Simulated assay, not measured.
Amino acid sequence: MPEVMFAGPDGRLEGHYHHSEDPNAPLALIIHPHPLHGGTMNNRIAYTMYRRFQTMGFSVLRYNSRGVGRSQGRYDGGIGEISDAAAALDWMQMINPNSSELWIAGYSFGAFVGMQLLMRRPEIRGWISVAPPADDYDFNFLAPCPCSGLMIAGGKDSMAPEPVIRKLVDKLNTQKNVTVDYRVFPEADHIFSQQAELIADALEDHVTTRQRNLFAPEDAMIQPAAEAVG
């Protein structure tokens, strides 16, 4: 897991990058929670998703947004953080010119940033959003959402309440050619203290299912899953 530094829009950004031995390996970008609330690339959920993508054969990058760790700059209310994510994606694509599959995965505030990036980068194949803060941020920009993905909520999450996330999922599922694989861990709060590996298992299940059905019609790829136990 070598440390890397790459150019961002407000200075250099710090990351950890795993490069697959397969030159055509798929890519995954991991986006951490809110930097003003302790969010870094070393967050347990972000790290667990990073490791699972690595195990699955992806080239994968997690990074610190501006002002976090050794990354230069300072917090910019979300706008600059979206630009940081785009710069991280640019860097990873530059050193993986032969990859044709790209995923993004974000946790909490990182899920919001990831979904914003999704709307700007049509090459993104799929997404993972863990505890998206749908009660604090307006997700109406997902109109239409470009592709299907996995959304995860905690049944006891007071910061990103499950009913609000479910409402977002229901809205996205009305869109043509979009199916959200929605999984709820009933005992989880926003920290997911006992569910990190369950999240990774859900990620792997969703991604491998989508990959198996790569040439199937989008609306036949995957159906919403039953609520998870955890």
Rank of each mutant, 00 (worst) to 15 (best):
V207P: 06
A200K: 07
F6V: 04
F139P: 06
G11A: 09
D205W: 03
V207T: 06
R12M: 13
T208E: 08
G114F: 01
N42F: 08
N177L: 05
E197V: 13
E187R: 04
Y47W: 13
L36E: 12
D189T: 02
Q175N: 04
Q175G: 07
H206D: 00
H18W: 15
E101K: 14
L214Y: 12
Q194F: 05
L89F: 15
S148I: 10
G67R: 07
V60K: 15
G230Y: 00
N43T: 02
W103N: 10
V68S: 11
D135E: 13
P163G: 07
W103R: 09
G8Y: 11
M5P: 03
V164S: 09
L102P: 01
Q211W: 08
E204H: 12
P163K: 09
G39H: 09
G230D: 06
P186H: 04
P144Y: 11
Q195R: 04
L203K: 03
P23H: 03
D10R: 12
H206S: 09
K176M: 14
Y17E: 12
I104P: 06
A196E: 08
F109E: 02
M94V: 03
Y17M: 14
Y75A: 13
D189Q: 09
L142Y: 14
A143I: 01
S148C: 06
F215C: 08
L29N: 07
V68T: 15
G106V: 04
R166C: 00
G8F: 05
M56Q: 04
G69L: 14
I79M: 05
R121N: 15
L61S: 07
P224A: 12
E218N: 06
G15V: 08
I79N: 12
Y63M: 09
K171A: 15
Q223P: 02
Q93P: 03
A226N: 06
Q72G: 04
H37S: 12
W103L: 13
V178F: 03
G78N: 00
E81C: 12
Q54P: 01
Y50W: 14
R62A: 00
Q195T: 06
P9D: 12
Q194K: 14
L13C: 10
K171I: 11
S100Y: 01
Q93H: 06
A87I: 05
